[in-house]
Design a protein around this nucleic acid. Structure first.
Lengths: 223, 223
DNA sequence: GCCAAGCTGTCATAAACCTGTCAGGGCGCG
DNA sequence: CGCGCCCTGACAGGTTTATGACAGCTTGGC
């Protein structure tokens, strides 16, 4: 769950970030459209929270550009105006939902979750590999019918690997998925650590995490 | 049991909310079709109580749209008119039941419960797990044949957990099911509290509520 | 109405355990 | 062989969860 918040009012942005973070989402903040585009060029997000009024350009313009480029990431617009025109305009430009300021943080969270879930549902659930299966909805992993308990980070890491089974994931890519920019100063070593822990818990599952020296890791059926 | 009340007369809406609340249901109120749609976009309800006459559009139109979208949530219509036409019209548009104002609140509650039960019946009744059983219709819980007394919130929480037995439910998800938007400022901590209380009452029932740190809670047979 | 009983949710404190660093050693590749 | 990358056990924080005590509200009985 990685979310980009595009909002120039620093206190507002921080408040939203705090709430979503507590809700288990990883958040980055951009104060301008330019900054937002920089983030988007580098990282893949599960959703955007987008203010309409920004210093350099309007959020609507950013949204239109994104859709023109074929990006289908869920977007929730924020607006200070309660006007049907604004709402229609936002939805016309490809927003998935909108919210009028001031809003209840729990409502923002709930709607965002709904958007992300809706989006994720289209991609299909319950991934399997060898005798291992993983369900992103229930956060459960099983080998045959026996459950394996994973911690939060292990769960995220397994998700990244199994969704890209057969492909080599660079350590940096995994790092990005696992930690947000605000997780200050976590060493790359942490990835190695979680790979090791995951390997231990996945022993005998018919699935292996191969090390590809200098390139990254690849999950695949073992043997 | 989460119910959305769509009614523009505030006093009427509040009265209904009060009664259903006392009957152990979690209620949200929407005064317009637009507001109702916003709620529906965010949350899943077990039933709708829908007035026909609303400020922006008619309840019938909302109902038709819902059915067109394939939503099969049980809907009980309220109408001030005693007219066979109105009744037929409502049922034609996909309402499951209707009630003519003024009505007895106990009747509303009974019919609503019947609708929910009918809907739940399709999904299978009387949930069992270990030596614990829970009846969604009567909201009663038993261990073997001995009844255990649960408070309202405990009942709702048990329902959420047992319906999703074996699945990890995030604290936020439980929170959504347990508290409505009008329960202002209830801390997430409250979930932990009710988990603790439920665990105490469920001791020796063969059922355990496991903590998955950072992820949520999971109910399952213990041992 | 009024009172008692019980349900609710907050707070503070303690416990549990997840996280990430470090360091020592292993292994592959040039 | 040597360098650099990777593995992994142990450990110190730090964050999340558990739980008892308490005050405000509701509810139901009288």
């Amino acid at each position: 769950m990685r979310v980009l918040i595009v909002e120039d009012a620093a206190d507002m942005a921080e408040a939203v970030r705090g709430h979503l973070h507590r809700a288990g989402m990883t958040c980055d903040v951009a104060g301008t459209v330019a900054a937002a585009e920089d983030h988007l060029a580098v990282t893949t997000y599960d959703a955007l929270v987008l203010d309409i009024h920004l210093p350099d350009r309007t959020g609507t313009e950013l949204l239109r550009d994104l859709r023109a480029r074929g990006l289908r990431v869920p977007v929730l617009m924020l607006t200070a105006l309660f006007s049907v025109d604004d709402r229609v305009s936002a939805l016309d430009h490809g927003a998935d939902d909108y919210l009028v300021k001031p809003f209840d943080h729990r409502e923002l969270e709930a709607r965002l979750r709904a958007l992300i879930r809706r989006n994720a549902a289209q991609k299909g659930e319950e991934l399997k590999l060898g005798r291992l299966s993983w369900n992103p909805a229930t956060l459960g992993a099983r080998v045959d019918d026996e459950r394996i308990d994973l911690t939060r980070r292990e769960t995220v890491l397994l998700g990244l690997l199994i969704r890209n089974a057969g492909r080599t994931m660079s350590k940096e890519r995994l790092y990005e998925g696992l930690f947000s920019f605000s997780d200050t100063d976590v060493g790359l070593n942490a990835i190695e650590l979680y790979i090791a822990r995951l390997r231990k818990k996945l022993a005998g599952s018919g699935v292996a995490i191969e090390t590809r020296r200098g390139l990254g890791y690849r999950m695949d059926t073992d043997g």
